[in-house]
């Protein structure tokens, strides 16, 4: 995934090309929450990948920060219909955490502090399509927006970009997550307007 200066997409593409169906653009960054905001100190933060066999590999904050970092700019789309263009993040591609992991899993469940979960096909986390991000617009990611670190999967509705992520659990079967199990779409492609179960 390339690195773009903020605004590059905005000048190069028209609004109609950038805005998925049923969305409206916003300059603000709304906070949606399904529970109290976890406060996770970086001193005790860990990120774990667990395979379908129960094998796991973990990273401390310092170990995560020692991995190759990427600056990446994306449009993000919330299922509640707001879209925000050219959001600048810094973090580690998910590929880096899965590099040496042996798995036959086709799916993953992102697990967060506070108990939130969301499910994705594993391939949607690979090949530069997803990151564990810790910095937004040059500043440490605030707890309200998922700091100290959240998942970023910008090609899917933003509920898939789990705040306060602490684990990726690789699974052989697809396991619907927190919102997917109460009517939201299992995949959540904003360009196909996959909002709910029936879409």
């Amino acid at each position: 995934m390339g690195t773009f200066s903020p605004g590059f997409h905005g000048r190069a593409r028209g609004l109609a090309d950038k805005l998925p169906p049923g969305q409206y653009p916003t300059e603000s960054f709304p906070v949606l929450s399904a529970g109290p905001t976890p406060r996770v100190p970086t001193e005790t933060w860990t990120f774990t990948v667990t395979t379908e066999n129960g094998d796991s590999r973990g990273w401390t904050w310092d170990e995560m920060m020692a991995l190759p970092q990427e600056d990446t700019v994306h449009d993000i789309h919330c299922v509640t219909r707001w879209s925000k263009f050219d959001t600048p993040w810094r973090g580690v591609p998910v590929d880096a955490f899965l590099e040496d992991v042996e798995t036959a899993a086709d799916y993953a469940v992102a697990v967060s502090h506070g108990g939130y979960t969301t499910n994705l096909p594993l391939e949607d986390l690979l090949d530069g399509k997803a990151w564990v991000v810790h910095t937004y617009d040059g500043f440490p990611l605030s707890p309200e927006h998922g700091g100290p670190a959240r998942l970023l999967v910008p090609h899917l509705y933003f509920w898939k970009s789990a705040k306060w992520v602490r684990e990726l659990r690789l699974t052989l079967e697809d396991e619907p997550g927190f919102w997917e199990s109460v009517g939201y779409h299992n995949y959540g492609d904003p360009w196909r307007e996959q909002r709910t179960w029936d879409d």
Partner: peptide, 16 residues
């Protein structure tokens, strides 16, 4: 109660 979007989540005031 958290929400209303994307949904309402009601939690125990004692243990969440």
């Amino acid at each position: 109660v958290y929400g209303p979007e994307p949904g309402l989540t009601a939690r125990c005031p004692g243990c969440t």
